Computed example of a mutant assay.
Amino acid sequence: MSRLLLVAVLTAVIHMINTLIYSVRLAGVRTKRLATALSLFQVIFLVASTANLIQAPLMSAIVEHAINAGLAHAGGGNVLDDPYYRAQLARLNADIRLVILAATAGTLLGGLLIPTFVRLFTRGIFLLEEIGSVPRMILRVFLSPRYLAAIARQVELPSIGRFRDALRRPLAIPVNFLVANVLITGIWTTGVLSALYAGALIPQYRSTATLTSGIVNGVAAVLAATVVDPTAAMITDQAMRGARPEEDVKQMAVYLALTRLAGTLLAQLFFVPGALIIRFVAELIT
């Protein structure tokens, strides 16, 4: 259980940080320094990358433990007909759904923290411009009580009320762009998890099934690169040029966070069908 809890926490952190990217665009528009804002975010994104490096093998180990326990109990028979292994699959199903729920929780927290991170990034951008070096900036922040106190003053408890204005305004961004974000997030959230579960459904070909996740995530990456990212960049650039109001970028950040949240919920529906499709593909190619 402790291993599963760690996987859930790391998943929440990954999705929280990936949601906070929306605050970077808004901070970049406000400061007219979008490139600096994106560069500064990469420092925080390293945390998500590190969490992912730890989370992936831990989740794989949970699945492998369930498979090996079932194979040992079956004693050379058809493991899929063994009631014990079916119980292992049911438990694994519940564990993976808990991990997906953690992704939803992390996305929700990241969305609620967007206003706070807009202020933090805005302050960080000007501080980086003053100091000229990310390592020196980090040292100054953590070694100076004055800077730590200034950062603490920027942090506020999450408040849904801050999003009301963005939601009340007439929608100024494309609807298909938001729908695509829901679908892409749903696919990306469950892609690896569905592949791992598919491996448990066909333990003799579990390596093939697991590696098939690259195809699933590749589809999501192509859709993100061709539909979501260019539209978000266009809206952000238009706001920086004055062709759009800053409020459009704020609205975009709010709606992207909401559609990302919806996508993690949709991942619960995608999970098992995705595993069955991956199992079919793995059996087809082996």
Rank of each mutant, 00 (worst) to 15 (best):
L266R: 00
N176S: 14
G214S: 08
A180I: 01
A233T: 11
A233S: 12
V192F: 05
P174T: 08
P174Q: 06
G191E: 04
T259M: 15
I160F: 11
G161W: 05
F177K: 02
R162W: 12
I160W: 08
R169V: 08
I215D: 04
G186S: 07
T185Y: 10
E246K: 14
L258P: 06
A198N: 03
T264W: 02
A243G: 03
Y197F: 09
N217W: 00
F177L: 03
A253G: 14
A239T: 04
A225L: 03
L256R: 09
V179W: 09
N176D: 13
A221G: 07
I160N: 06
L266I: 00
S213F: 06
T259W: 12
L223N: 07
Q268V: 05
Q204V: 15
V254N: 08
T212K: 02
I187V: 12
Y197G: 05
T208A: 01
A243W: 03
G161Q: 01
G161K: 06
A253W: 14
P170G: 07
A224G: 09
I160V: 13
I173G: 09
A209T: 08
T264A: 02
L261Q: 10
T185L: 06
V216R: 03
G218A: 10
A225R: 03
L201C: 09
L265R: 00
A195W: 02
I187G: 02
L157D: 11
L258M: 12
G218Q: 04
D248S: 04
A224Y: 06
S159K: 11
M234P: 00
K250R: 06
V228A: 04
G214W: 05
V254E: 06
L167P: 14
A253H: 13
V228W: 03
A257Y: 06
L193R: 05
Q204C: 13
A232W: 08
P170Q: 12
L269Y: 08
V219W: 01
Q251D: 09
E246P: 14
A166I: 13
T259K: 15
I187D: 03
P170K: 11
L167I: 15
D248K: 05
M252F: 14
T259D: 15
E247Y: 03
V228L: 02
S207N: 15
P230T: 13
I235Q: 05
S159V: 07
P230I: 12
L265D: 00
V192L: 07
A257H: 08
V227I: 15
G218C: 05
A198D: 04
Q238F: 12
